[in-house]
C-alpha cells in the first residue's frame, strides 16, 4: 500500500502536466468535429499525446485506416524501446496479467519518472504511478472538449510550456551528476534540432524525428560508455 501511495504521489505532477496538454487535445478534437464522448474515449484508450494529435488530423481529413495505423505505429514506436527498457527493471517473476496491466500505462512521462526511481520497480508502485495521469489525461480532454473556451487564449498557450518544463526537470539532475548522460542528451537534442530545421528532412514526422534522435544518441552512448558488470 505504501508503494501505491508513493506511486500516486509521483504521478501527481505528471497528471497536472497532462491536464493542460489533454485540454488542448480536447479543444482540437472538438473543433475537428468530434463529440465530447469520442474525444474522451480516444484519450482513455490511447493515453498518448503525439499519436492522438496526429490521429485527429488524419480522422478529420477522413484518412484511411491504414494511414491512421501506420502513423500511430511510427509515432508510438518509441514505446517499444521504453517497454523493453522497463522489462529490465521488474522482477522476472512478475506475472503476465500484471505486465499486461502495466503496459497500458507506458507513456514518456510515466516511463521517465519510473526510471528515475532508485528502489526496485514494483507492480503496485507502477499502477499507483499510472492512476492520476490516466484520470488527468481523460479529464483534461473532457474539460477541453466540453468547455472549448473557458480559458483565455493567453493562459491556454502559456500552459503549453508545462510539459516541457517537466521534461527538463527530469533530465537535468541526472545530467548534472553524470557526464555521459549530459553528452547523450546534447547529442539527441542536436540531432532533433537538425532534423527539425534542415529542409532535406522537412517531410519527417515528429515521431520519426524522436525515434531517430533516440536511437543515434543512445547508440553513441552504448558505444562510448558500455555498462560494466553489476551497474
Amino acid at each position: 500500500m505504501r508503494e501505491y501511495t508513493k506511486g500516486i504521489k509521483d504521478g501527481l505532477p505528471i497528471c497536472l502536466g497532462y491536464i493542460s496538454v489533454s485540454f488542448a487535445f480536447g479543444l482540437m478534437a472538438k473543433r475537428g468535429g468530434l463529440s465530447v464522448l469520442s474525444s474522451v474515449l480516444i484519450s482513455l484508450t490511447n493515453l498518448t499525446s503525439a499519436g492522438q494529435f496526429a490521429g485527429i488530423e488524419i480522422i478529420k481529413s477522413n484518412g484511411t485506416l491504414f494511414e491512421l495505423a501506420f502513423a500511430t505505429l511510427i509515432i508510438n514506436l518509441r514505446y517499444l524501446l521504453m517497454s523493453l527498457s522497463l522489462s529490465q527493471r521488474f522482477d522476472e517473476k512478475t506475472g503476465t496479467l500484471k505486465r499486461l496491466a502495466m503496459s497500458f500505462g507506458i507513456t514518456d512521462e510515466i516511463f521517465a519518472v519510473s526510471m528515475q526511481r532508485i528502489a526496485p520497480l514494483t507492480f503496485t508502485y507502477f499502477i499507483g504511478l499510472m492512476t492520476l495521469p490516466i484520470i488527468g489525461w481523460s479529464g483534461g480532454t473532457f474539460l477541453g472538449a466540453f468547455a472549448s473556451s473557458v480559458l483565455p487564449e493567453t493562459v491556454r498557450l502559456s500552459l503549453g510550456i508545462a510539459i516541457y518544463a517537466m521534461f527538463i526537470a527530469i533530465i537535468i539532475p541526472p545530467a548534472k551528476k553524470s557526464r555521459p548522460i549530459l553528452n547523450i542528451i546534447l547529442i539527441s537534442v542536436a540531432i532533433s534540432t537538425i532534423l527539425s530545421f534542415v529542409p532535406l528532412f522537412a517531410g519527417l514526422s515528429g515521431g520519426w524525428r524522436i525515434i531517430i534522435s533516440t536511437i543515434i544518441a543512445s547508440g553513441v552512448g552504448a558505444f562510448l560508455y558500455p555498462q560494466k558488470e553489476g551497474e
Partner: peptide, 14 residues
C-alpha cells in the same frame, strides 16, 4: 547501456 540512455535521449529530443 543503450537502454539506460533511452529515456534521456527521448526526453531531450521531444
Amino acid at each position: 547501456s543503450f537502454l539506460n540512455f533511452v529515456p534521456y535521449a527521448v526526453l531531450g529530443a521531444m
